[in-house]
Amino acid sequence: MNYIFYFLIVVSIIAGAANGKLPDVVNAILTGAELSVKVAFSLIGIMAFWLGMMKIAKKSGLIGVIAKIIKPVTKKLFNEIPEDSPAIGDIAMSFSANAFGLTNAATPIGIKAMEELQKQNIDKKSASNAMCMFLAMNTAGFQLVPATVIAILIGVGYENPTEIIAPTLLVTTIAFLSAIFMSKLLQKFWAPQQSPLAMGEGRISAGGTGVRNSGEDFGGEN
């Protein structure tokens, strides 16, 4: 994350200066900061709502049933997570919410799933294989009906807006499957996580952060 943060900001300032857009770039700091707080605050209500709903669904056993149905798939994708972990149910719900285009519900449920995955994580600062897999599934944006895009198409007078559903679904499926495949592939080549306790205190602070450092070969443990 260190490199991404540095890259985004420093490259923007340099490119902005080169393009004569430095004032815009500096203004973007303010608007971006404001926007982040707006996004977070706009999430509070809807997040509370869906976390409440999810708790009911969990207590009533609904999530357990859904988790059981998709077990054959999740067992393969998240082989490091115990089969009875609540994370599996949350992952299933988050995926369903995304598929139906319920973005508002998908975010809180997805965060809940990440929290459950964090409980199984041996190094709380770095992303476990299961987290990378779950994130990959999310970033591929699998969705059955792209409702917002269709709404815009209708707005500009597109004759048959539903004709883009099939190609979009095909493309999103390809991206989704390739994300899963690449996640599994990189998991094999990337150095496995190691518990910070095993590395010793000094190693944690010296171990640095960011993608590159976490790729250091600590060897051994899986």
Partner: peptide, 20 residues
């Protein structure tokens, strides 16, 4: 997602996302 649980080492997560 990673902010909510305090993950700062992404490992290969971003690479997979961008490749996808």
């Amino acid at each position: 997602y990673f902010g909510a649980i305090g993950i700062s080492k992404l490992r290969y997560a971003l690479i997979v996302g961008l490749l996808a």
